[in-house]
């Protein structure tokens, strides 16, 4: 069986995307609090939902980035041939 090697550069990149997703989820939660006139305590009480949203955003970004990388790869192959 072949070992999978994830380069440190890739891990750092994904952690940045995850942090970005978390920040975006926090901003969305804050927007929702203002939009629906809910108490600011929801910044803490809804932490579990914010975390779930952050993971969702990160997965979505991963899918989009994987798709984009595939398209780029196909285009570069065609140019090379």
């Amino acid at each position: 069986m072949k070992d999978l090697v994830i380069p440190a550069r890739r891990i750092r990149c994904e952690l940045r995307w995850l942090a970005g997703s978390l920040a975006a989820a926090c901003v969305i939660n804050a927007y929702a609090i203002v939009r629906f006139s809910r108490p600011w305590s929801e910044l803490l009480t809804q932490a579990h939902r914010v975390l779930a949203l952050a993971l969702g955003l990160w997965l979505l970004s991963a899918v989009l980035r994987a798709g984009l990388a595939t398209v780029r790869s196909l285009v570069s192959r065609r140019r090379a041939s």
Partner: peptide, 9 residues
């Protein structure tokens, strides 16, 4: 009681 803002959104 209304749902949390995030859920409503």
């Amino acid at each position: 009681p209304p749902a949390p803002g995030l859920v409503q959104l």
